[in-house]
Design a protein around this nucleic acid. Sequence first.
RNA 1: GUGGCUAUAGCUCAGUUGGUUAGAGUGCCAGGUUGUGGCCCUGGAGGUCGAGGGUUCAAGUCCCUCUAGCCACCCCA
Length: 421
Amino acid sequence: MAGISRPRGTDDLLPARVAARERAVAVGMEVAGRYGYQRIETPVFEATELFVRGVGDTTDVVNREMYTFTDRGGRSLTLRPEGTAPAVRAFWESDLRQAPLPVRLAYAGPMFRYDRPGRGRYRQFNQFGVEVLGDTEPELDAEVIALAWRWLAALGVAGTSLQLNSIGDGECRPAYRAALLDHFEPHLAQLPELDQARLRRNPLRILDSKELGSEELLATAPRTTDFLCSGCREAFDRVLQALQAYRIPFALNPRLVRGLDYYVRTTFEVWHEDLRGAQNSLFGGGRYDGLSELLGYPAAPGVGFAAGLERVVLLAPEAAGPQPPVVFLLAAQPAAAATVIVLAERLRERGHEVICDPGRRSLKAKMRGAERSGAALVVILGDAELAAGTATVRRLGDGHQAEVAADDLEQQLQVLVPNWN
RNA sequence: GUGGCUAUAGCUCAGUUGGUUAGAGUGCCAGGUUGUGGCCCUGGAGGUCGAGGGUUCAAGUCCCUCUAGCCACCCCA
């Protein structure tokens, strides 16, 4: 087809899919509200520096996936690739910092990453996420996970598994990193090229390698959880205990490392069996106690998660909720057109959903239109009704039909459809 | 960013070894006598066969480039 098509990796949402996504967000905000989280919105673009410093300049997100541009004032701006760094910035720039800690926040909105598109992966995608700022209590990690878990349950998403790990902090991670390097270094030459590069750039990343040549070495590699310092060890134990109290099943996954640099201690992802291969991650998150300082602010520990709404919606069963009854008002003859419009407006003012067809098409065509619109009732006005001051009301479905006084239309409609609201 | 597969009406797809005006189902519009939907019947609109080049007497069918989607990798949501 000629003409201009939408940019790669973007999508037009038709009414049914808009409704599905809005439902996912609404349910998420409702569940979050029950845990005391309040919604915020931050700009879609931010200073580029916010992500370079927050997410980390060794990450793919920053290296090659950012939509960065210079505005007319010479500032380098970036369409946000994630929501955590903006939330921390907003915390410090607003009076949230004076609120009692911890601050519990929820957000939803579009994110942008210049990645190669595929099923469940878009260049503009939507996330729902929460952040808890200003507190290091490990039970908060479990709270965030619980909230996310309940959200999926409320949407009817089944077949998920919670993958959990602790990657330590500034105190114990250097020792672990050294042990990891010791383990792989003697065999460096035999490793696939990709994994050699990983060891150089970001050693932890080798843990989620899927390269065949590394399998054996990975199986015997040291585990993050064996190197935790006492602080991290105790915190992780408390997370596990809290999750048990929440009755949330989890799978310990010592090879779960996350791609963003700011994570410490708890990391987690939720996987789904039907999302094959690369895009099996429904959402991910973790603790990021050092992020605030990376951004140049005072310390503010935090924990949170972000979920990909496109992937969640892909797995959520259709919610075919009860549709409000719709009235279809039509003119049988041109003379009734004005009256049809007047009556339609009167019903709309009272909150009813009304489709109006005062045009010149045949009655038969209009009736077919009414049928296909999904309306519950048709109101017909023509020469006969005008002369008598009445309206003909027909119930689609069973074909019941009645003549009612036009002035009394709304009340008569309620009689014909008992559960009218 | 790497490799592979795919691309024909709004949608789902046919289209035989390259050969006349490219089809079906569904959807859409209109009719089947005068003011009535669903079922049925009939008719109509709608495609520069993703875009651009090339080979050939002849290309939807073969070749190249580009674009987009899907799969695997990379990475993540």
